[in-house]
């Protein structure tokens, strides 16, 4: 879990030069827009080798780094 969060955090740091706490709401952070979000989803799919169904793509599954990590680990199972 920690490792996944760290990978996501590094991506955000690298792409947006910003630090996000693991529970911080990414949609309210003001650093990312819908275009950036599509890229983030692409990054997650590639880095963790998972395929999202359109049903997965709801704000509830992506609002924080911690929540994304949970969903990623669930999908991996």
């Amino acid at each position: 879990m920690q490792q996944v969060i760290q990978t996501l955090g590094e991506y955000i740091k690298e792409q947006y030069n910003a630090q996000l706490d693991k529970q911080e709401n990414i949609f309210n952070s003001g650093i990312i827009d819908s275009l950036g979000f599509v890229n983030l989803i692409g990054f997650i799919s590639e880095a963790f080798e998972i395929e999202f169904e359109p049903e997965d793509l709801i704000e509830d599954n992506f609002f924080s780094l911690e929540r994304m990590a949970q969903v990623i680990l669930q999908k991996k199972e």
């Binding site: 949609f27 979000f37 709801i58 704000e59």
Partner: peptide, 8 residues
């Protein structure tokens, strides 16, 4: 409304 996910 802030657009992120088309489903929303």
């Amino acid at each position: 409304f802030k657009f992120f996910m088309p489903n929303s």
